[in-house]
């Protein structure tokens, strides 16, 4: 088959909220799900300012490490209009030799293409994870969430000090 060239990416712009926000966006799992946690954080620019016109999306396996179970949504989406994002989910299981993780896309005004990162969890063994091992050791902890009262926190630092590791997917 002939190869077709990909359509280029463009920024979501400042008015993303009207097009991409869903009432149930943050709910990877419904309220009341056993073991559910809130995964929350901010998106910060190179001046350390909070970005309020960003959208954070997550994709993850279920607690058994599977993506294909009937009824498993696996997807979360939250804009940052209130200063941060919040995703209601459960901690995934290990997937194919990798430590439990979420794949994350960040869109924003000023981002001409999404940024891709991963979120890992502090309680899991991560030393054999092939993706983390491909990251310089001193930067690996930018990919690990921290524990909070009702779940986890993970800030995305787009630029500058302790810049989050982003992936070329």
């Amino acid at each position: 088959m002939a190869e077709l060239p990909t359509t280029p990416s463009q920024t979501v712009g400042p008015y993303l909220h009207i097009g991409l926000s869903w009432d149930d966006g943050p709910y990877v799992v419904p309220e009341g799900t056993p073991g559910a946690v809130w995964l929350c954080g901010r998106v910060l620019d190179g001046a350390g300012e909070v970005v309020t016109d960003a959208l954070v999306e997550s994709w993850q396996a279920d607690p058994d490490g599977r993506f294909d179970q009937l009824g498993w949504r696996g997807f979360g989406r939250s804009d940052t209009r209130d200063g941060g994002y919040a995703i209601h989910t459960v901690v995934p299981g290990a997937v194919a030799g990798q430590a439990p993780h979420l794949d994350v896309s960040v869109f924003a005004r000023g981002l001409l293409h999404r940024l891709v990162t991963r979120i890992y969890f502090p309680e899991h063994e991560r030393s054999e994870d092939p993706v983390l091992r491909s990251v310089p050791p001193e930067r690996r902890d930018t990919l690990v969430a921290t524990r909070t009262g009702d779940g986890y926190a993970f800030d995305v630092r787009i630029q500058g000090e302790r810049e989050t590791v982003f992936f070329d997917v």
Partner: peptide, 11 residues
């Protein structure tokens, strides 16, 4: 202020 300055890591 909204672009990473570190190179992206191949995934």
């Amino acid at each position: 202020l909204r672009h990473p300055t570190q190179p992206l890591t191949l995934l």
